[in-house]
Structures are given as C-alpha cells and as structure tokens.
Design a protein around this nucleic acid. Structure first.
Lengths: 184, 184
DNA sequence: GTCTATACAGTGATAGAC
DNA sequence: GTCTATCACTGTATAGAC
C-alpha cells in the first residue's frame, strides 16, 4: 500500500520530533522512522533538507500563534483575550508536557540558523500582549508582557526538569493572577 | 611545547562549549579545537567520553550553586541572601549572554541522560529559596520560589531569543521587586 | 599526558528505478 | 510520490607510540 502525503501532513510530525530531540539531535533516520517516509520522499517535500524542514515547522508554529494568540490580543476585548491566552497556552503546551520549540532553539547555537524567526516569535508575542495590557489600563504594560512570556518559558523548563505536569498549570495561574491585579 | 593539564582545568572550558552548542551539537572535534587537547588527552581525563564530560560539567555547576546560592539561602540572613542571589545570578549568567546549561538540557531528549542531576538542580534551588522566603515571613513561599526560578529561566530564553542583554537584568529587577513586596 | 592513526557506525544528501 | 542504493563526510571511540 502506497500512502500519498502532502507537505502539510508531515510538518506537524516534524514539529514533535524536533521538540523531543532538538535540532542537532534530530537525524534523518529518526525522521524516517517516525514519519514512515523514506529519505526520497522527505527530500521531495523539503529539497533543502533538515534546515528547510525546521523552517517549515517554525512557519507553522508562527501561523498558529498568530491566529490563536496574537491577533485576539491585538484586536479583541483585552480582558477576554488575555484570559483566553492562558487557556490556549496551557492546552497548546499540553500542561507542560510539550515544550516551546522556538524557546529551545533560542538557547543554543541553532539560534544562529533561525534567528529571524525566533526573534519574530517573541517580539510579536510580547508586542501583542503589551497591546492588550495597555488597552486594559495597565501602566507598566511592556514590563508585564515580558514577565508573562518569560514566565511561560520558564515554567516549561521547570515542568520538564522536574517531570511535574502540575507545576506548569500552577505557574500559569499565578501569572494570570498578577495580570488581573494589574488590569483592574 | 607540551602543556600539562588536569581535569579541573578542562571542565570550565567544556561547560562553555556545551552551553553554546548543546549536548548533541557538541562534537569531539569541536572540543578538540576549543580546548587544544587531542582526543587521546580527552579520553585520558574522561574515559566515559562525551557523557562523562557533561556529567563533570553538571557536577561543577552544582557545586558552584551550592556554595554561592543555595547555602546562603538556607543559612544566612534571608533578606540578604535573596538580595545576593539576584546579583550573583545576574553575574553568573553574564546579564543573559550566558545560558543555563541545566535548563537547556532539560528541554530536549538529553534530559533522559542526566535527569537526576537536572531534577536535583531545580529541586534544591527552589527548596533553598523557599526556605529563605519562609524565614522572611512570606506566606506563599513555595509558589513564589517557583515563580522566581522559572522567571530566571524564562528571562534567559528571552535574552537569547531577542539578542537583548538588557531584558535579562530588567527581568531580574522586576522579580526582585515582587520578592520585596512579599517579604516586608 | 599527549599525540597520530585507525575503526566503523551514523550523518546529511543525491541519483535513479518504479 | 516513494523506494533503494550509494555517496562523501563526520561522529564517537580505541590502540599504541612517544
């Protein structure tokens, strides 16, 4: 049986592999195993190899955050959008069992390969969050937005390091309370 | 000229290499280049190869944090020890230009190799910080300790992602203010 | 202790048959 | 589109001379 795929079907699988193994730790043979696709198929979809695969994953992540997080923060009711962010983020990162690929890429040398996409991701997240906080009447919107995004990234590190799923959700709740106190 | 080294001289060099390249991204040839030592010397000091090198680095990091951060938090004046922690952490991570190797290892699959050391690092940091906060009269010491450690890790991610050194120091100052408000 | 030489599995990548 | 075969290269690790 010859299953026919398209690029869009493979990208989410690649995302999970990069998440678990990191960029350097992800080898084409592991990708072959986990996707069930041979190298021929892989290079058919991604002529640029592993780097193009990672770029496709980053673009996919960016698109998801744009529609699910950033746009509501910029356009919708500020209080509602912030509240929805905590819920969506907790869901997206599977209560801390899933990490942020962009954050992980930022930490080591793979940052150099994807610095534009990495910088963009955080600039836009912080910017959108600041926009919502400002509209909600927060006086120190930039600092609080940075604290919120950093808090999420840090909570992911802790959750993975301790193997504790509860700490992620608990951290988000603490952050949410800080935001409520600053916007009432 | 034949320079003679000892293990203790090499570990800090290895630490910087692992920090920049990550565990998987660090190859023996890169280690050879940056340390000036051949593979023979490397395997003389670390018969277990790359994994033993990383374990030595993690032990070195642990020892530094124990004496510079954890012990003061557990034993010294609580307010002073917490204030010193912010200064020492900012210095140790070079205002965000240097990352936390333990946090980086926690994010991807290399966590499995070093899970004991990684878990220990964060458990003891949070525990020591909670001890100081409790002595300082904080009612929600565990939650605030978690928030502080997570905030530091997240600030490192942001600083690297944005290539912005100022954001790290600024984030530490914000966290310090939160701690002061909770312990007065 | 440090080096060179070497083993050999695994790497990213390409070519071509189907 | 998918596969298999194959490429040149780099990976970790070892052995042995000095």
């Amino acid at each position: 049986m010859k299953t026919v795929h398209e690029r869009a079907d493979i990208v989410p699988l690649l995302a999970e592999i990069f998440r678990e193994l990191g960029y350097e730790g992800t080898s084409l043979s592991r990708i072959t195993q986990r996707t069930g696709l041979g190298k021929g198929s892989l290079y058919h979809f991604f002529p640029g190899g592993k780097e193009e695969m990672a770029n496709a994953v980053l673009a996919d992540i960016d698109a998801w955050f744009e529609q699910a997080i950033y746009r509501p923060l910029r356009q919708d009711d500020a209080h509602q959008a912030i509240a929805a962010m905590w819920v969506n983020v907790n869901d997206y990162f599977r209560s801390g069992r899933r990490i942020c690929l962009v954050g992980a890429f930022a930490l080591d040398d793979t940052r150099e390969r994807f610095s534009a996409a990495i910088g963009d991701y955080f600039i836009r997240w912080i910017g959108a969050l600041r926009s919502a906080l400002t509209r909600a009447g927060c006086s120190e919107a930039q600092a609080l937005a940075e604290e919120g995004v950093a808090g999420i990234q840090g909570a992911l590190v802790l959750a993975r390091a301790l193997g504790d799923e509860l700490i992620f959700t608990r951290s988000l709740e603490t952050l949410a309370k800080r935001f409520e106190a600053a916007t009432r």
